[in-house]
Simulated assay, not measured.
Amino acid sequence: MTLTSAPPKAKLVRAIEVWRCDDSGQRLTLASGAYGDDDELRSGSESMSFCLGEGLPGMAWRDRSPVVMHDLQAGEFLRAELAERVGLSSGIAVPCLHRQQVAGVVTFLCDHGQDAEGAFEVWRRNQRDELALSGSYYANLDRFGLISQYVKFPKRAGLPGKVWSEQSPKLVGNLGSSKEFMRAAGARAEGLNAALGLPIFSSPLEIDSVVCLLSSARSPIASVIEVWTPAEPDDEGTDSLTLRSAFYGPYVDLAPAASQRRLSRGEGLAGRAWQEMAPVATDDAPAFETARGRRLSEYGLSTGLGFPVFVGERLAAVVTLIG
């Protein structure tokens, strides 16, 4: 087991949840979740359900668009008392759309205590047809957040603009020196080292917004970030996913094997999300990632999320987050 740098010292994302419609289609219920050691949060969430527009997941379901909630201990968050007891501060809900229907809502529940650093951003088109910041959560990154308020991204410019033009997730590592990240100097000063951009579509031809996850070495949103995309069918006509881009932080020895893999439906977190056509979260990533499960366990990487991105009905990519 070889690490290229020290493991993370703080934890920003305390839980990742996947909410999906029940059989009636009238309420969102918890389909899967990654809570780590937060047993109280887990047990207090398992019985919850949300109607359209209710709570953080229900708001994203209603709007079919990302929602940022800065104070989870306030009334709009239906688990406010629970959030106060376990120390949650903020959250973001991101809908997964398939054929323009909400296939699931992913919620990231955060705690910016212990000097945890990182950010979630929502960029939307303005009247000048540029992407402007419309929602954000900057954990202990006030200066970076202030600068970002004044930044705009035309199509094909910067990470949000490239996600917009390519209609697919995009991952950028080594932010402080990256020419692809227009705020590289600010990222370097704040210790941000990886950024993931996710497109959210209002229709197959129109983008609603771009969600950016900005991760730090001190408190990564995920220690492993991968983008898997559909490959050409093999000689037998079998579809698969191959790795397009990845960021492994200190766990770089995971890279060689991943770059050679072809995932079938149901294989790994990415293959499971592809199979279900919906997001999947887990507290047992090694059980999903059997080909590298032993190595993940050795590193203590247990939580995981598979998030499929569709353009209409076409699968554009599947993002995996492991931490």
Rank of each mutant, 00 (worst) to 15 (best):
L214E: 07
Y138H: 12
S49Q: 15
G58H: 04
R42F: 10
V13P: 13
S302P: 00
V67E: 09
D23G: 02
E46Q: 13
I225K: 00
G75M: 06
L141A: 10
G55A: 03
Q275D: 15
E190F: 02
G44K: 02
W123M: 09
F288G: 01
A157Y: 00
G197R: 03
T229A: 07
L301W: 01
G176H: 01
A185Q: 14
D235H: 12
Q260D: 13
A31T: 04
G173K: 11
A34D: 02
R272Q: 12
A287P: 02
Y248W: 08
D253C: 11
G186W: 09
F307S: 13
T107M: 02
A189N: 07
W228D: 04
V67A: 05
L97N: 05
L241Q: 08
Y299G: 08
V318K: 02
E54N: 01
S148Q: 12
D129K: 01
P154I: 01
Y138L: 08
F77N: 13
P250L: 10
G271V: 13
Q101S: 13
M277S: 11
L305I: 08
A281M: 08
G118P: 01
A258I: 00
T107E: 08
K9E: 15
Q275W: 09
F181E: 03
F144R: 00
E276P: 00
P256M: 06
A217K: 09
R314N: 14
S240E: 04
A132C: 13
T320V: 13
V122L: 12
F144E: 11
P233V: 07
V280I: 13
I200T: 15
H112T: 09
I92C: 05
L56F: 09
E40T: 05
G36L: 02
G135N: 04
S168L: 13
A316L: 15
R143F: 15
G135V: 09
L269R: 03
D239T: 10
